[in-house]
């Protein structure tokens, strides 16, 4: 079971009280982008085994969106943080690196 703590209201609840929003920090490609870039923006998603950053919505609670860093293999949650950001905060990056020392956040996708 995946349990998440919503950073907007502080409730810890199990996953069915939330709605998954897929990979976080996507870089939007607009009409000016090349076809392959636009296609990648719409359809290509990371699917790592290990640390992953996703958007979630507290749909059966406060209704807010937030970001979650979690391990897709163990369901361990490294942390949750506000949507008002372009990437994970340092403490969450550090938490991820305790399990995956070489992990880096792909900033290219988030500029």
């Amino acid at each position: 079971m995946l349990a998440l703590t919503c950073p907007c209201c502080g409730i810890t609840a199990e996953e069915t009280e939330f709605h998954p929003g897929g990979e976080a920090h996507l870089k939007r490609v607009g009409p000016e982008g090349a076809d392959d870039e636009f296609e990648a923006y719409l359809f290509a998603r990371k699917n790592p085994k290990g640390a992953h950053i996703e958007r979630w919505r507290h749909s059966y609670g406060c209704g807010k969106w937030f970001h979650v860093a979690r391990d897709t293999a163990t369901l361990r949650v490294f942390g949750a943080y506000t949507t008002q950001s372009y990437g994970p905060p340092e403490d969450i990056v550090n938490a991820i690196r305790q399990s995956y020392p070489d992990w880096t956040f792909d900033r290219n996708a988030a500029e």
Binding site: T12, E17, Y60, G61
Partner: peptide, 22 residues
């Protein structure tokens, strides 16, 4: 509801679900 009722205190308002409805 999947809420942890033991964590719901006397002055808490817990938003959750009952089976399939909010």
């Amino acid at each position: 509801s999947p809420a942890d009722l033991g964590a719901v205190g006397s002055d808490d308002l817990r938003r959750s679900r009952a089976a399939q409805t909010a």
